[in-house]
């Protein structure tokens, strides 16, 4: 940025700060959302561990609604149905599903790593703007005081 912060007026700095505030908030919520989705994928990947040969044929309760369950047996421990987005579901075997979730988790990690430096940069910029604003406000107060003194 070629513009020197100290050259800007207080209202301009105020505007800049508001803009940076907005950007910081946007990036922060983005990272938060990424983390939420990532946890979901991690949980899904972990629960796939239950689908192994040892658990084949075991009884379980299937939730038909959130308040009603029916008994069932675990018949197929090799396959599961994965949501790949925009309404498409794919039947994959357990290994492929794990690979799918790992891919998603890695993708999200990369995205978060991409955003993090940008967020830090914006944060530092905001801090700099606030500092300059404080200095300006102090200067303003001092000049006001001294003009009052001369008046009195």
């Amino acid at each position: 940025m070629a513009v020197n912060l100290t050259d800007l007026s207080l209202p301009q700095l105020e505007g800049l700060k508001a803009q940076l505030d907005q950007e910081v908030e946007f990036l922060t919520t983005s990272i938060g959302q990424f983390k939420v989705v990532q946890t979901k994928y991690v949980e899904a990947k972990d629960s796939l561990n239950v689908l192994n040969k040892n658990n084949k044929g075991k009884e379980l309760l299937v939730p038909l609604t959130s308040s009603m369950y029916v008994p069932g047996t675990l018949n197929d421990v090799e396959h599961c149905l994965v949501d790949v987005g925009t309404g498409y579901y794919v039947e994959k075997n357990v290994e492929d599903s794990k690979a799918f979730f790992k891919r998603k988790i890695d993708f999200l990690t990369k995205q978060i790593e991409k955003i993090q430096p940008a967020l830090q940069e914006k944060h530092a910029m905001k801090q700099a703007v606030i500092e300059v604003m404080n200095v300006k406000i102090q200067q303003l107060q001092q000049s006001q005081q001294s003009s009052q003194m001369t008046k009195a």
Binding site: Y88, Y89, D96
Partner: peptide, 23 residues
């Protein structure tokens, strides 16, 4: 972006995978 991600996933599949569409 969403559709690109789905496309990538679909490209990884072969005929042994069964695809369902949520309607």
């Amino acid at each position: 972006t969403e559709n690109n991600i789905v496309k990538e996933e679909l490209d990884l599949l072969d005929s042994s995978n069964i695809v369902y569409k949520l309607i």
